[in-house]
Amino acid sequence: RHMGAQEIEIYLTHLAARAKVAASTQNQALNALLFLYKYVLHKPLDDPIHALRAKRRKPIPVVLSQREAQRLLDSMQGQNQLMAQLLYGSGLRVSECLRLRVKDLDFDQKQIVVRDGKGAKDRITMLPLSLIQPIQLHLRHVRAIHQGDLRKSMGEVYLPHALERKYPNISREWIWQWVFPSRNFSTDPRSGRLRRHHRAPSTLRRAIRAAAKIAAIQKHVTPHTLRHSFATHLLENGYDIRTVQELLGHRDLKT
């Protein structure tokens, strides 16, 4: 209670200089102390905190070779394999893949429309020819599930940007359904309705980790690794960096 900004500065500097903690850990400590003083001790700190800040490390992206990527995908099966193939073949983020709706797939143009990507931007990326038939076969199965849901007076999905209020009947239409729906219904916290949401990202992450072990890949492989590998392999195959930037949805060439 008797300590103030000066003591907090000393402690935070110790975390950065001696304990060598990550920047996120130091920020968490600062936020916890600010909360303690303001809401528990009722002594908000008015003086600015001038502590030595921990440096943010920029990790080098993990990239698979083309052979490693193929071994990884060959070690997977079912929907998880198809989702991983999309991450690698289209450069999708895992959230973008899971949020795909039927209408976002353009088989004739061999394109995927990514809606509301990072930065709330839409973009178009490639749909590999090799994935068209597997996705179409997968959608036949998904459509059968959807038709079964409709017979149970279910089958509606969450719609973005108040579309549900404007068009109350389209939430059950086929084109708005998730490409990768979950196996079970769950309660939508936004509306309280029982719906079939899209699959959870944790399922795909676990499947990719398991596949990396099976394929004996000695790297830390995550879903985002496939996106990095997509970009790297396009550049290796002669694509210009501006095109790759647009496919990834990056504002800055440096990223």
Score class of each variant (00 low, 15 high):
L12S: 09
L86N: 10
N80T: 11
K166V: 00
R18N: 15
A207P: 11
I60C: 13
I112V: 14
F107H: 05
L82Q: 08
L234K: 06
H198C: 01
T187N: 03
T243H: 11
V157T: 09
V94Q: 01
R190S: 01
Q85F: 06
A215I: 11
I112D: 08
S202R: 06
L45A: 04
E173P: 04
Q177G: 02
G148W: 02
P59W: 11
A16N: 13
T225G: 13
V102S: 01
R165G: 06
P181C: 03
P59N: 12
W176C: 00
A32Y: 08
K121T: 00
K103V: 06
A22C: 06
S130F: 02
G148M: 01
Q245M: 14
V221H: 14
G78I: 09
K103E: 06
H228A: 07
Y167I: 00
H2F: 01
A16M: 12
A54I: 10
A69I: 12
L226Y: 15
D240L: 05
L247K: 11
Y11I: 05
L204D: 11
M3A: 01
P44Q: 07
D47M: 07
D149C: 01
K152M: 04
P181V: 01
A207N: 13
L235M: 10
V157N: 03
I124N: 13
M83R: 10
I124F: 15
R242V: 12
L30N: 05
G89P: 12
G78F: 09
Q81V: 10
Q133H: 07
E246P: 06
L137N: 08
R227Y: 14
H138L: 11
V21N: 05
V244K: 08
L150P: 01
F180V: 06
L52A: 13
T232G: 02
E156F: 03
V114D: 13
P61V: 11
L52F: 12
R56L: 11
A200L: 13
A210V: 13
E96G: 02
I49W: 10
S90M: 00
T225Y: 14
E96L: 02
S24D: 15
G117M: 06
A69H: 12
A32I: 11
K118W: 12
R115L: 11
R1C: 09
N237P: 02
I145P: 04
K219S: 12
N80W: 09
D240S: 01
L100I: 02
Q133K: 09
S171F: 04
L248Q: 09
A84D: 10
K213F: 05
R196D: 05
M154Q: 00
R199A: 07
V157D: 02
A200H: 15
S229D: 04
Y37D: 08
R123Y: 15
H198Y: 01
Q77R: 14
P134M: 10
